[in-house]
Amino acid sequence: MSQAERISEIVACHRGREGALLPMLHELQAAFGCVPVEAHKPICAALGITAAELQGVIAFYEDFRAAPQGRHVIRVCRAEACQAMGAEAMIARLERALGVRLGETVGAVTLEAVYCLGLCACGPAAQVDDRLIARATPERLAEEVRA
């Protein structure tokens, strides 16, 4: 299926729902790793919103992005309960070990901050792709992306 076909399929599947935009954007991102610009026109047409409105929504939410991330995504929790378990120092060591800074993608690896994963009694918490990791160490996280 071409990209355009897949886009119109996803848009058509959600357009009838109330408040369809977020479910639509989530599914587009699951399919393409981002919300491709090619999807903007079909979304606006289906929902009767302007390009500016759509842009405003995409920009508002941390989750939505215009370009895909690295093949591996490491998300490290920076919120208070994880800070209490040394998250800041852990993250600093991880940045050095990987040669990637928070918010950057280098090669296949994206490193980003997250504010709470609901693992606050076993921090520092992290997520590598779809795997949650408690009591994270830089060594363990680096190993996960090499695996």
């Binding site: 977020l22 939410y61 989750d63 939505f64």
Partner: peptide, 19 residues
């Protein structure tokens, strides 16, 4: 949701639900 803490506030949540 889509990664916005403020969407836990109920009226913000409703806006988000409405797309």
């Amino acid at each position: 949701g889509a990664g916005a803490y403020v969407c836990g506030e109920e009226t913000s949540l409703l806006n988000s639900l409405e797309g």
